[in-house]
């Protein structure tokens, strides 16, 4: 068996100290922001690449997003993915049902062309939308088993072994392949791209698969920032000389 793994990644803005909104409050003002792969999925790419290093095979990365998401796809190639595919959007953020339908369509096309994926890796939740559902919708539509919250992933013959945290430790799941996993940051430590890998990824061919937008029943109206408690910061001092004041504070709070 040559292992075939697919990872679905989303391009998300990387805001700083505070999320700034556009004037109509329908979007994050991304003018001055960088973008990244949503963190859970970035670790998912690394997990897939490590499994392929161990067992042989190939990793494909798929994203639904604006043309600029090319940046995240090429980044994935530079850290070890073998193929990257874009499902282009109009630039708006598609709801979970629309996203899942389009991904299912694209996955079916990829599988019809090159064979089924043994493993499809999703993030537990996307960093920006936090819908906690696209992976499960895709799994149901494809008829494949999925567990979310995965922080350890191995293959054992024709099964996937997934570890996830529980209230007092962790639990281990066994799923027959082909299977899916919704992974969390911490499952792996993503590597950094080497310079030659980055140069090579710039030249790679990144094909597109078109998919229609079929919106679901949850529609975003507008955003707001949570009310921030304004705190008057009490500066206890500067440098090591502040140590007695800190210990007084610990004492006052009953923490000594």
């Amino acid at each position: 068996m040559t292992l075939r793994i697919l990872v679905c990644v989303k391009r998300v803005p990387a805001p700083g100290a505070r999320i700034v909104l556009t004037a109509d409050r329908t979007e994050i003002d991304a003018k001055n922001l960088g973008f990244a792969i949503s963190p859970h999925e970035e670790c998912g790419v690394e997990a897939a690449v490590q499994l392929v290093e161990q067992h042989g095979g190939s990793t494909t990365v798929l994203t639904l997003g604006p043309g600029e998401a090319d940046e995240q796809l090429r980044y994935s190639l530079s850290v070890g993915a073998d193929k990257a595919v874009l499902v282009p959007t109009d630039g708006s953020d598609w709801d979970a049902q629309a996203t899942a339908r389009a991904l299912v369509h694209a996955i079916s096309e990829l599988e019809a062309a090159d064979g089924a994926f043994d493993l499809i890796v999703m993030g537990n939740e996307s960093a920006d939308s936090g819908g906690f559902q696209v992976g499960i919708r895709v799994a149901r539509a494809l008829g494949r088993p999925i567990v979310n919250g995965v922080k350890g992933l191995e293959l054992d013959g024709d099964a996937m072994i997934a570890r996830r945290e529980s209230a007092n430790g962790y639990e281990v799941y066994r799923l027959p392949l082909p299977a899916m996993a919704g992974v969390k940051e911490g499952i792996t430590l993503p590597r950094y791209p080497t310079l030659p890998a980055r140069l090579k990824s710039k030249k790679a061919d990144v094909p597109s698969v078109a998919a229609a937008k079929h919106p679901g029943g949850l529609t975003t109206g507008h955003f707001s920032n949570p009310v921030e408690v304004v705190t008057e910061t009490m500066v206890l001092g500067t440098g090591p000389a502040a140590a007695p004041a800190v210990v007084d504070l610990l004492d006052e709070l009953g923490l000594l």
Binding site: P15, I28, D128, L218, T219, F223, S224, N225, P226
Partner: peptide, 16 residues
């Protein structure tokens, strides 16, 4: 609903 782990609040309509 909460997005961005609590850093952003969304007003949405749910129709079904």
């Amino acid at each position: 609903r909460i997005r961005w782990g609590g850093a952003l609040i969304e007003e949405a309509s749910l129709n079904a």
